[in-house]
Design a protein around this nucleic acid. Structure first.
Lengths: 214, 214, 214, 214
DNA sequence: AATGAATGAGAATTCATTCAT
DNA sequence: CATGAATGAATTCTCATTCAT
């Protein structure tokens, strides 16, 4: 049984190595131009070996997304787990967490967007799709829960918490996307963090306008 | 002279026909899986003919983006041209315009995202890149100008108008993106308009919190 | 009838214009990379028009060769036509003529070599092949005749005149070819004229070794 | 270590198999009409496999030339290596060697000619160009050395040995070329060997005319 | 488990040639 | 005669995937 377990662990470890290699290659060459062989070389394995760990290229792509989603899930949970935090603190922590997630894998959005194209999803195993779905929902629920608390604490307006989480997430991904586009087209630096902070702060303030709103 | 002109017009018309066909194909099959031959068939032309109108596949892709950006530019300008509109009205008009833009070409973001990957941009002609850059800036300036007016009218907080336009745009694209993802992964309907409206209204309110902000 | 003739003349003139344009394009871009459209542009005509004057691309290629062969034929005849020339003078004149031919069209060999490939010849009209054959033979006969005279004058050894003409021609074309190759591979200048002169002078001397030979 | 070596050998063997197949195809169909697919079929491999051994079509072409140049280099060296040979014997051996080279690969000149067009060379790797250059020079030096010895032995006139080697080589290639052309155009047999022997003997005699020359 | 050579289906692109105007 | 837009067959090359070792 111990042997079984060790093998299992080693297998998982190798899988992670491949994913890390893939991430590096994608960062370097972009998705379209990255080949299985590139990734294999980066992972110091042969192309064939990759297929022992991933059904096909799309599953490998998708697994990268899972990796990010797992990190996101953990990181977000961590952001709010400390007991005794009020809405203000938790929101601030969430925002910090988003930056960490971005830095964990700046290519995350390319990744997820790539995944979206129905072509790619078509060949994914249902289990993987389910895993992505579950992880996404979990993170979204964490965010929504914070807004819920804000409402319960009477600090912010009552809106559908999930809707607010959607907006929170959209603003974040939209900003990252826009940063990329601007840099690519205009060759200019984009102050991503400042922009996101300003956006989040405006959203937050907008939610607090109880007096004017009612 | 008349002949010259007519030819010119016919050429432009044919170009547009191809772009429309390309849009249809992309919507159907997604970018990656769409081939030049698919588009040619849809346009009822031969593959070779497409190359009389577009230097290569990437330029064809990019031209689709230009098409959308042109529409956006015109639509946004239209949204604020009516004289005597105050900030409130103009912002509302802008938001309506964004929905029109989305409806004009929901695939727009796939498109622009595709464009983003530096690989694709590498082979674009500098003129095309410049055109995309110019059109983007123009629309952003239109949006920024509205925020500027809001500040000048004393209705909203003084923030960098371009930063606000960036946020406005990011929220929009992020929402569209997220809608796609959610539908793809979770198979659920996403109330895009409501979400965007809520987001924009929160941003707007956030900007108006003068009293709390100072 | 006069009209008929004028038309004929104009047609021939246009044909020559096209050939001149083709020659320029080939010199610039090489054979493989030259397209019918390139030639048409250089000739300030449309691609379709070229097909009114040449059955297809191969015939156009071949006609270039004919052009050179015609020039060669005339130039060689001219080299020996002056009455009262002895073998020595005629041989010297022939050699000068070869340089003129080379300068008339340095690409000549590419041309003729290209023609050689059976693929190209397959589609040529029998008339054109016959014309090339006739012109080649004519020039060779001119060269052979000079050697014949040298023998009749007792100045050179008796060898098969045609064989000597073949050698004369081979040395010339081989040198031009080798010049090209050396320049291409080694990037060095090649003293073509000096080399050919030395070669021809050695051949000539070899032919005169009556005493030693017998 | 043994495994490494065996793989290396097998790889080289496969490379040679492909080159042999390519040679057959080129002989059959000529260069222009030979496609990668043709060669792959002849080699009983798939098209993709060829690209594991050759960067692209031009490199495959060029490698054929290298093959011939290697043979030439070895064959020429062999021709003069026997100790105690004087100039007369060495020259005779060189000439025999040239015939062997011709028979080793009659398509050689097509090949080298093809290579000449700068278009083709443009895409060759610098290493390959360098290899071709080096091999060519080596053979030329071997030929030149024989002439040098002839001069040192006082048997032939003092001329630049390299220039004589150029002429030697030009006469050979020119003859082969001319044989092809004559057969193609006139459908007649051409006595290549006799022609070349006559040419070389004339050159040789021309060089020996010390008395007349001085 | 790992390898990596081989596969072969595709994809983008070119260009000689045609033909309606 | 001339045009030049359109054609579409043909070609090179790529790369995810397989499978014998």
């Amino acid at each position: 049984m111990g042997i079984q377990e060790r093998k299992e662990r080693e297998r998982e470890r190798r899988r992670q190595d491949i994913l890390v290699a893939a991430k590096r290659v994608f960062s370097d060459k972009g998705f379209e131009r990255s080949t299985i062989e590139d990734i294999a070389r980066e992972a110091e394995l042969s192309p064939g070996t990759l297929y022992l760990y991933f059904k096909n290229k799309d599953e490998l792509y998708a697994s990268l997304t899972v990796r990010v989603l797992q990190f996101m899930s953990v990181r977000l949970a961590h952001a709010i787990e400390e007991p005794g935090l009020n809405y203000d603190r938790k929101l601030a922590n969430l925002i910090d967490a988003m930056f960490d997630i971005y830095e964990f894998d700046p290519v995350i959005l390319n990744n997820m967007f790539h995944l979206q194209s129905s072509e790619t999803l078509r060949d994914l195993s249902p289990e993987l799709i389910e895993e992505i779905n579950t992880l996404s929902r979990k993170s979204l629920r964490t965010i929504a829960a914070v807004f819920q608390e804000g409402m319960d604490e009477g600090r912010i307006l009552r809106r559908h918490p999930t809707a607010l989480a959607d907006i929170f997430w959209s603003m974040f991904t939209g900003s990252v996307l826009w940063k990329e586009t601007k840099q690519m087209i205009g060759n200019e630096q984009y102050p991503l963090k400042e922009s996101i902070r300003l956006g989040f702060s405006l959203l937050d303030k907008g939610l607090r306008q109880q007096a004017l709103d009612a």
